[in-house]
Write a protein that binds this DNA or RNA. Structure first.
Lengths: 360, 360
DNA sequence: TTATTTACCGAAAGCGTTTTCGGTTGACAC
DNA sequence: GTGTCAACCGAAAACGCTTTCGGTAAATAA
């Protein structure tokens, strides 16, 4: 059970046993085999705390999980964490999750980590456009990788999706279909991905010589309700858009509902494209077109990057990877139809729906 | 930085400082105040590994996360984990997540834990109807709580929802609405919740003196596609049902799609109720009726239970809590309509949909 | 005064590993 | 015979904390 037991049984010293198990060079092959066999038979498992205390290595990484405020894409999160846990497991490392209550608490946690080094590496996500965490983690010399860039990510390690290009492509696709009145339902631009997606949309319009109507840039909460509200606003305009680029599938689904409540059909009078490639989109009526990210194993990649930095001292800036999202046409992206936009006769609220905080 | 530093600075011994920080009774209030002040100023944080090694306590709990095989309700999982992390954080404990690749590997992990005790407590979920984990964890004397019961849960600690009653109520509701031909789309009954939900449905029918048609009991994969396939089968029957109790909202959403593809309207010819209370149900056309669990903070509760068992040696069987799900009527549960069931003119596949593995 | 308690603190022995530093052996060359 | 060099292994010192066991000094009791 302890290293001791196995040493006595074999009439070897603890240090020899330890080095045999850790595959040191100065232990003969015979001895190693002997020790390993005994260890297996006795079902020996080293005590992680003792090991970590002695070696100074923590052999675990922590993931700073974004608060579940409804703004997150839960299924993606779960897949991400599964990937991380698996990849770590293969190395015998642990995954622990942190859910800070505030930005300050998050910094506190970082400082604790830098003091005690009880965490070898960190994975952060939900990056802000300006994000002090990059500077702080760099100063504290904590190896970390970010899921998502920032204006401050500099030479840090990250993987990300090219949000600008994704929304540029999405918007260009609408333009190619013949649309000219193309709106964007975005989010809080302190989040970097929000800002980038808005930029992609804007760039594509400018590139095509289309005026960017400020009313066409809605900012919404990243939820069903947020999307619905934003779409309502768009429909109240004197000249509503014929196509809408939504920052997420959730928002797009809310937008679809708002369209239906006005007696319109998503993908007919108003085309809609979402982002995330959620499976649920396939099961809507009509199925929601979307942009899909190719990150089939982001979690695994993140883990591998941070492990490499911890173990081999890899330079963070050698681990920056940008992926491209691709359009998945399902049913809500079509050419504009004649006779629209026409002035709506006011907002028709079919089933006196309440959009916010239902059943909370 | 180390306990040493602080001791020297105050001209105290390490042991005094340690006991002062841990609020021992044999340290004067003055000394405690002094030590705490110094610790704060120096930004002292004890090294968790050393502490754990010395005290023999791990001060962390592990959550055995179900594999993300699409069968899980991701948003619920995320909420659960957030709750756990928060509650643990308040106690200064860590949360680590395990994602075993197989049942065997899971047992292996348990045995490792029981050897090294590097985890103080465990939270398991996804319980099977017959689940050896209860026996094993009991034998290994690892404190644990289960999210969900089992036939083997015996005197273990658990919190769960009364699945039988939930589906009894759901079915009784359909009966009260006037339905007589009530089907059930369930899942793999090796999972306890599957078996229980099927039982609730069956019990209600028997209670009402309604024959249980074996064809009305469909077993499906717990996914959109699974629900769609099962509903197709039901619609092919000589006399299709007028109401369907679905084991989950995902399955119900797939079922709704299958109805639409046959030119039927969910909640008109065939009523549908799901289970989980997913937010997305509100945004469907028509909004999906469902059963909602009141577990607003299951994660927190699970953590508190296991902490109590670890710290105060609480008896597991004093921590068994059953919750009741409530019906949320939205739009898909209505009285049966006349003229249905009629024999369908064959399955009409409107948009040559492929249900399985789309875009995989 | 002496004995007995009480309040407070220090010394030191762990906790179970890792890792450095030497030391012993045997082989081989000279 | 002496010296050199590998190849192996053991002794012992960390790692940073907790906790037991006494021990001192002051306070109380007799």
């Amino acid at each position: 059970m302890k290293l001791n037991t196995i040493a006595q049984r074999l009439k070897l010293s603890e240090s020899t046993v330890s080095r045999a198990l850790n595959d040191y060079q100065d232990i003969s092959a015979d001895t190693k085999a002997l020790v390993r066999k005994a260890a297996n038979e006795l079902g020996y498992v080293p005590n992680p705390h003792a090991r970590r205390l002695a070696s100074g290595k923590a052999d675990n990484i922590a993931y700073v999980m974004p608060r579940s405020d409804g703004q997150v894409n839960a299924s993606f999160l779960v897949e991400l964490m599964t990937g991380m846990a698996e990849a770590l497991n293969a190395k015998g490392w642990d995954l622990s999750v942190l859910v800070p209550n505030s930005a300050e608490e998050e910094i506190d946690i970082f400082q604790k980590i830098s003091r005690t080094r009880h965490v070898s590496g960190l994975i952060i996500s939900r990056t802000l456009t300006r994000d002090v965490r990059f500077k702080i983690l760099h100063e504290l010399k904590i190896p970390f990788v970010s899921h998502g860039r920032s204006m401050d990510s500099g030479a840090a390690a990250w993987i990300d999706v090219d949000n600008v290009t994704a929304f540029y492509d999405m918007t260009a696709h609408f333009i190619a279909l013949g649309h000219r009145r193309i709106a964007h339902i975005g989010g809080e631009e302190s989040y970097n991905f929000s800002a980038q997606r808005a930029r992609g949309w804007r760039d594509a319009l400018v590139q095509a010589g289309i005026m960017v109507d400020p009313d066409f840039h809605q900012k919404a909460e990243l939820s069903y309700a947020g999307g619905a509200l934003a779409m309502q606003s768009l429909l109240m305009l004197a000249e509503p858009p014929t196509a809408v680029c939504c920052i997420s599938d959730h928002v797009a689904i809310g937008a679809m509902r708002a369209l239906r409540d006005c007696g319109l059909v998503p993908g007919r009078e108003v085309s809609v494209i979402g982002y995330d490639g959620l499976e649920i989109g396939n099961w809507l009526e009509p199925p929601l077109s979307t942009m899909k990210q190719p990150l089939q194993s982001a979690g695994q990649q993140l883990v591998e990057i941070v492990i490499n930095m911890v173990e081999h001292g890899d330079s963070p800036k050698d681990h920056q990877k940008l992926y491209r999202a691709t359009l998945v046409r399902r049913g809500t992206d079509n050419p504009p139809v004649p006779g629209w936009p026409k002035r709506l006769s006011g907002y028709r609220q079919d089933k006196n729906t309440t959009f916010v905080g239902e059943e909370k």
